[in-house]
């Protein structure tokens, strides 16, 4: 009976525009997670092959699989050395892309105004200036796991939801920068979930052990499930705060069609970050995940590419004036 219900729900209809966007988003997130598994395995295989360690290659199922795939190639190194790193610092050939938070951390801890390393964050910074917190919703591997934790939370029927101030994460960012300057040691790397997920997968695949970060991440997951929904992304994440600040005057924004909107609040309920897209009060925290667009049954909510609100924005990136009055509904209590 349960199975029949599941099947009928699946068969409902072929995904429309907003659902296709979700398919694309999940595909990207799963691809990132798959890369985080694949890159350490490929590196391990590459090193074992350099040492001509046939026994080492054959003694593990993953390197054995890689060996079967690349053994016949002319240039196996073109594949096994193609990509390195994780979402913290990614290296494809000569191209190095790193998280802007890594650059902030580096500049603060080593107290240098300029280094070649700063260039590596250029691409993410530009994308965030245009699209906002898009890395949070579309590429972050921890976001996927936190959303799964949210599913577990719903499944277990846990209602406890402690809320904090949204400005907390900006304070965490500022405090971390100050701490890095004083200590002369990078601090964000130890508490940034996307880096922790990548690093722990690397440690597990390469050495068969986990580090301290795994405990931290497990504690975060437990806190997400039992105490506060998506609290890390909403209130604490310094990387999220940095992306939000970068995307404060972004061009990609949600827009409510006041004629089509029936004020059913389905979009507000669906928002993972607990924002208020119906009232137009999503501010700089919106990660453009598109769950609210999918939830809307009247096509009243859509993305719009254009200039930021003319009246300026307040501390959390909400429009100061004009726009809020024109949109229906009150801000969520």
């Amino acid at each position: 009976m349960i199975l029949r219900g599941w099947l009928s729900r699946r068969r409902r209809r072929w995904p429309g525009g907003a659902r296709k966007v979700q398919v694309l988003r999940r595909t990207l997130q799963l691809l990132v997670l798959a890369l985080l598994f694949a890159i350490p395995t490929l590196s391990l295989y590459d090193n074992l092959r350099n040492q001509r360690d046939e026994v080492g290659i054959q003694s593990r199922w993953d390197t054995r699989l890689v060996h079967r795939l690349v053994a016949d190639l002319e240039e196996p190194k073109a594949l096994t050395q193609a990509v390195r790193g994780s979402v913290w610092t990614f290296k494809a050939g000569e191209l190095v892309i790193s998280d802007p938070l890594a650059v902030v951390d580096f500049v603060a801890a080593s107290r240098v105004p300029w280094d070649r390393f700063l260039i590596t964050a250029l691409l993410p910074v530009l994308l965030s200036l245009l699209l906002g917190r898009v890395f949070c919703g579309w590429l972050c591997p921890a976001d996927l796991l936190f959303e799964l934790a949210g599913k577990a939370r719903n499944w277990a029927g846990i209602k406890t939801d402690v809320t904090f101030s949204r400005g907390t994460k900006t304070a965490v960012l500022a405090a971390g920068v100050v701490a890095a300057v004083i200590l002369g040691n990078q601090v964000f790397a130890e508490i940034y979930p996307p880096r922790i997920v990548g690093a722990e997968l690397y440690l597990w695949i390469t050495f068969g052990t986990f580090g301290a970060g795994a405990w931290f991440f497990l504690a975060l997951i437990a806190f997400e499930i039992f105490v506060s929904r998506r609290f890390w992304c909403r209130y604490v994440c310094p990387g999220g705060a940095l992306y939000a600040l970068l995307g404060r005057y972004r061009l990609l924004r949600l827009e409510v069609d006041p004629v089509a909107c029936t004020e059913c609040r389905l979009c507000n309920v669906s928002c993972e970050l607990g924002l208020d897209p119906m009232g137009g009060r999503f501010g700089q925290d919106c990660n453009n995940c598109g769950l609210c667009v999918r939830a809307c049954g009247h096509d009243a909510l859509n993305w719009r590419l254009g200039l930021p609100p003319s009246g300026g924005v307040d501390r959390l990136g909400h429009p100061e004036s004009g726009v809020a009055a024109a949109t229906p509904g009150e801000p969520a209590p």
């Binding site: 390195r84 790193g85 580096f106 080593s110």
Partner: peptide, 14 residues
Amino acid sequence: RAACTRCLLCGEVC
């Protein structure tokens, strides 16, 4: 300690 960004790339290529 100030400069290392904990990207683990050195371990991957070792």
